[in-house]
Design a binder for these strands. Sequence first.
RNA 1: GUGGGAGUAGCUCAACUGGCAGAGCACCGGACUGUGGCUCCGGUUGUUGCGGGUUCGAUUCCCGUCUCCCACCCCA
Length: 432
Amino acid sequence: MTNDRRMIKAIRGTRDLLPPDTALWNLIETTARDVFRAYNLQEIRTPIFEATELFARGVGEETDIVSKEMFTWEDRGRAASDKAQSLTLRPEATAGIVRAYIEHKLWDRGLNKLFCVGPMFRRERPQKGRYRQFYQIDAEVIGPASAGSDSPARDAEILEMLATLLDRVGLTEWNLELNSVGCPNDRARFNEALRKALGPVKDKMCVDCQRRAVTNPLRVFDCKVPEDQPIIDKLPRIGQFLDEPCRQHFEAVQDILKGVGIPFHINDRLVRGFDYYTRTAFEFTHGGLGAQNAILGGGRYDGLSEALGGPPAPGIGFAIGEDRLVLSLQEKQSAESVTRRPAAYVAPLGAGMNREAARLARELRRQDLVIELGDESFRLKKLFETATKAGAKYILIVGENEAKADSFALKNLATGEQISVPRAELANKIRA
RNA sequence: GUGGGAGUAGCUCAACUGGCAGAGCACCGGACUGUGGCUCCGGUUGUUGCGGGUUCGAUUCCCGUCUCCCACCCCA
C-alpha cells in the first residue's frame, strides 16, 4: 500500500473511448465489415509490433514516420547468447500485411483481398484528429499480376467501395482527390526536373520549401504558404512524366469511375508520404477536421513486396483514419442516437425477487432482446427512475403477486399503458 | 520538434486590484414501503492540473512541469 494519491492518467496522445461514443465506433466498424463482405474482402490480423527493419525497408528510411515518429525499443534476448532485437509498434498496416503475404506465400491463393482493423502508433505531437495511438481500418488487394492485381479495375473497385462505405455510414460531402504518382522511373525523372525547376526560384520561397527542395522536392506541393503558390503553379507536374503504361492505367481508372458514377477531382499536387506508393494515389477529405482534413488515404504500391524480399506482387490499399471519421460523423449524428437502448427493464420488487427477475431476464435475453436488470433493494420509485434513465421502452415488474400468477406487469414508459402479460407471451409483447 | 492559447465540482462555466471557492445541470437521500417523469427539502460536489517561489494571505503574481486545444510540421 502507498499513500501516493497522484492520479495515474492516460499518457500523452492516448485516450479512452467511452460510451456513448463507442456506439459510433461500432457503427463504423460493423458498416465497414458489411461493405467489405459485399466486395469479398476477408479479415487479416497481424501483430501490433514488428521488426523495426520492416518499416525502415517498407515505408522508407527517409520518411518522417520512420526517421522520427516510431515507438521503437530494444527487446532483450532470452539468453545471454541471444542478440537483442529492435522492435517497433506498427505506425501503419500495409508493411505488416505484405510481410504476412510473403511469409505465408499467400500468392498461392491468387488475388488476396484483405482488411484489418486496429490501433497504430506514431510519436507525433497530438492535436485534433491526431493521436499517438490511433485507429485505422485498412484494406489491401494484393497478389501476382496474373491474378489481375495490377489492373486498373482493382483501383476503381477500391475507390467505388470506399465511396459506398462513406455514404453508408452517413458521411456526406466527402471529396475524392485522385492522382497518379507513376512508377519509380517516372518519379526519378520528375524529381530531377523538379529540382532543376526549383533551383532558380527556391530562394524566393518559404524556408520549409527551401528545405524540401533539397531533401524531398515532391513535398513542395504540400506547401500552403500563399506567396509560394504562383511559383508552385508553374512547376512541372508528375502527369507530364508518366510513361505510356502508367498514363493508360490512370486513364482506365478514371474511365471506370465515371462509368460507375463516382465523382472525383484530379489533384496533380497530391503526393503520398511513403516511399512505396506507385501509380494511383488518392485521398478522401472532409471539411470540419481542421488541418487534418484527410479521413482516409491510400494508393498503389506495385514494388513493395520486392522491396521486402518477396516476389513481384502488385497491390493497392488504403487506410481510413477511424478517429477522424468518428469526428466527422459526430457533426451529423450524436452518439446517443446510434446507441441501442434496452427493450425492457426487469424490475424485481421486494425481498427475494432477484431470483425470479434473473430467470425472466435470461429467458428474454435468449430471444435476442436487450434487457436491463434492476435490483430488489431498489424501491419502486427508484426502479422507475433507473429504467427511464437507461432509456428502456418497457418496465417489467416482478413482484410477489406477479410471480404467483406467473403473469407480469408490463408498462410502456413512454405512453404509461400497462398490461398484465403471461410469461410465455412476454417476449412477443415486448418486441411488438 | 517549433509557435500561440487554455486548465476551477462528473459536465458547462463564474469568483473585482491578492482577502472565507460559487451557480446551473448531473448525482445521492428524504417528503413518497406496489406505479416514474413534475414539485419541494436536504447532502457531497473540489488537494483550483502538478511542483516550487513571492506574500500575513495565491484560483489570482512569478518560475518550472504535465495535459488538452489551435497552427506549423507530418499524415490517417
